[in-house]
């Protein structure tokens, strides 16, 4: 089970326990994601927007953050990230089924609009890119109090076209705030390909304009993602300022359950991308390394499916919100007139 120091596959520095945890978190996110698609296609959940193909980078960063101490301003594909930080499959099933006990929003928002105060996961809305400034502001407050928390924030490459992208990187860089900006670049903003989104292939190049490091990482390589996450978070925590990470990832699904990417992407490309899927490749790698034995991954899957079945049952049995509760929580006193 031990990993050779001289192994060339890039796992150096990550012990077997970390690698297994990385795989398990990725698998847990993928299984939940698949379940949410199934519920949608069965007509039981009105909407889903997926993180499939993004799991490696999300889990890598999640594992290197301190839940409830660090600040997290995620975007809608960050299912895997929220699970690592401590949210549960049941939490997100309650959200997808719009139940009253959904901890993200009490069934008020569409699914994948993440938020959990206990874990410092800042509530997210649908406008793209606005969350980057919230991360900068949280980091400013931490800096003023002399705390060493880190603010993580993420977006797609489409989000990097918003004005708030510039305003947030600019502000964080001026004050050397501990913000880790992560672009999960899957090459498509709904149907618009990256080359209609920006004139150069790497969002990370823009870091230079702010005098901060820009890092490109293969977002389908969990071990590379883990090292980048560990190093950039440590750098930010030590007071050296923000960093812009760009993970090149695959969008293995359509944009959302209301989209069909076969209208704008070729079948050949979609088939080819499946072969590059971080999850299946990582399993092979870990089995080759001896980190996972032949039965380990299947056993892990069976155990996670069990958790998921139970969570699905509980979420489906949970109550819908009372209609009049729509009037609550506009302002602190509950009266928004």
């Amino acid at each position: 089970m031990a990993i050779s120091e001289t192994d060339t596959r890039g796992q150096a520095g990550l012990d077997a326990e970390t690698l297994r945890a990385l795989y398990r978190h990725m698998l847990r996110s993928r299984l939940l994601d698949e379940r949410l698609w199934a519920l949608n296609r069965q007509g039981r959940a009105p909407f889903w927007i997926s993180g499939m193909g993004h799991e490696a980078v999300q889990v890598a960063f999640g594992m290197n953050l301190r839940p409830g101490y660090d600040w997290v301003a995620p975007y809608y594909r960050d299912l895997g990230l929220t699970l690592v930080l401590g949210m549960t499959p049941k939490d997100h099933l309650l959200s997808a089924l719009a139940r009253a006990d959904d901890p993200n929003s009490g069934g008020r928002q569409m699914p994948a609009h993440y938020g959990c105060h206990r874990l410092n996961i800042i509530t997210t809305g649908s406008p793209v890119g606005t969350q980057l400034l919230h991360a900068a502001g949280a980091a400013l407050a931490a800096r003023m109090r002399g705390e060493d928390s880190v603010a993580f924030t993420s977006m797609g490459e489409g989000g990097s076209s918003e004005g708030d992208f510039h305003e947030a990187l600019n502000f964080a860089a001026i004050h050397k705030l501990a913000v880790v900006f992560v672009v999960e670049n899957n090459g498509f903003a709904i149907s618009v390909p990256w080359d209609k989104q920006m004139p150069t292939p790497d969002v990370a190049d823009r870091a230079q304009a702010y005098g901060i490091p820009g890092v490109v990482v293969d977002g389908e390589d969990p071990m590379a993602c883990f090292r980048v996450a560990r190093d950039t978070i440590a750098r930010a925590r030590s007071g050296e300022g923000p960093v812009l990470v760009e993970a090149k990832v695959l969008r293995l699904t359509s944009h959302s359950s209301d989209d069909d990417q076969r209208r704008y992407r070729s079948a050949e490309v979609l088939e080819a991308e499946k072969l590059r899927d971080c999850l299946s490749r990582f399993r092979v790698t870990l089995e080759e390394l001896g980190v996972l034995s032949a039965g380990d991954a299947d056993e892990m899957r069976a155990e996670l499916v069990l958790e998921l079945d139970r969570a699905t049952d509980e979420a489906e049995a949970a109550a819908l919100p009372e209609p009049e509760s729509a009037l609550r929580h506009v302002l602190a006193d509950g009266d928004g007139t």
């Binding site: 600040w71 400034l133 949280a138 407050a141 708030d164 502000f171």
Partner: peptide, 28 residues
């Protein structure tokens, strides 16, 4: 300088950063 902070000329930044600071315990 921290508590009375000159911002860049960017209104979304001013309010967005204030929101983040408010979430993390400040009264901006």
């Amino acid at each position: 300088e921290w508590r009375v902070l000159d911002s860049p000329l960017a209104e979304s930044c001013i309010v967005g950063v204030a929101i983040g600071a408010a979430l993390n315990g400040m009264r901006p």
